[in-house]
Design a binder for these strands. Structure first.
Lengths: 187, 187
DNA sequence: CCACACTGTTTAATTTAATGATCACACGCG
DNA sequence: CGCGTGTGATCATTAAATTAAACAGTGTGG
């Protein structure tokens, strides 16, 4: 599932009608290297790739932006939701999840989460650029995001950037059910 | 607006409680190099960075996702959710929504939807590429997506591409509550 | 107290990327 | 043809990434 860096770089350059030498001038790298990279004869360092992409006016994150979307299954019975509860937690987390072999690529993931009294996810830090949101359906739960904490009850909601460290703790004495979503999936 | 590759890599590794050597084992690179990269003493090649990120289970594109806004509203009391019920529907739809003036840009929208008996959204078709998912919390509802229809109950879920025409109808005699999410916002 | 396992860092050798110049081909023009 | 200028690819050299092994620090337990 590798992206062909060389191929992609070449088409980006050609899309701007630049020659390897012109781009080399804009990028402060040599045309020879651009040639090598486009042929995948060398794997450029991040710093070098960044120089080249600067010349193209493209950011690294844009360069690596990928897209894919194929679907089939639409409806999911509750017993078909995939159990993805982390080992340490009291409670359960179930995901709306397509089993389709290798390429189950979605931009949205929906979770059913049930936290028993005392459940604690611990601090979590996801790398992925994503947003995470949820609505409390039943019970109460303490949600900590970054340095802010709050106890939420039925109907309350949260929405934050997934890269912020976050933590869920059921500090009450009844189970708590949360329906949450994040984008993109982090698995 | 460079992101600190080394620092970012380190926090990602630590978020998974991995030592440099453990990650090295998973990544097929040496622990020494991981040390160097984390200190920004070398700029890894794309292939090397990819190996390392493979060991962390994250993709290059995810890695380069840019840092963004931090200080924002995170928690939402139920009475603060914005009412966005379409005029014709029986029931209500409330959105987790930030009022912040101009730049309320999110990739995820979370909805609390309540359908009274007889409620019917009618056919809906959104032009833009997005995904829509939901989990039924209470009651039953008939969900039609494209040419497929199904009656879902508590705990059941759905997930589909927003470009498919879709429709929700409460054909029972009790209210139905659905928590749903879509990405990106469609308003 | 010493040995052991673990952490991250550093050093020296090797492999590889990156440079600057050259090569080879194509096109237009006198 | 013969020359100038453009393209991308290639060759030796240099600079840098990468390796493998050693170094230094922190517990932990016999």
């Amino acid at each position: 599932m590798d992206i062909d860096v060389g191929q992609r770089l070449r088409s980006l350059r050609e899309a701007q009608n630049l020659s390897q030498r012109q781009l080399a001038e804009l990028s402060s790298v040599t045309n020879g290297m651009i040639s090598m990279v486009e042929q995948n004869r060398t794997s450029p360092s991040i710093s070098s790739l960044k120089k080249i992409l600067d010349g193209l006016g493209i950011s690294i994150s844009e360069f690596f932006a990928v897209e894919a979307a194929m679907e089939e299954t639409i409806f999911f019975r509750h017993e078909d939701l995939r159990e993805i509860t982390p080992p340490m937690a009291k409670g359960e987390i179930k995901a709306v999840f397509k089993e389709v072999g290798d390429a189950a690529q979605h931009s949205l993931q929906m979770l059913y989460e049930r936290y028993e009294p005392g459940a604690d996810t611990g601090e979590d830090l996801y790398a992925h650029e994503a947003e995470e949101a949820g609505i409390i359906v039943e019970g109460h739960i303490e949600v900590t995001v970054g340095d802010r904490a709050q106890v939420l009850g039925p109907g309350d909601a949260y929405l934050f950037d997934s890269r912020l460290p976050h933590r869920f703790r059921n500090i009450g004495n009844a189970a708590c059910v949360v329906i949450s979503a994040c984008t993109p999936p982090t698995f």
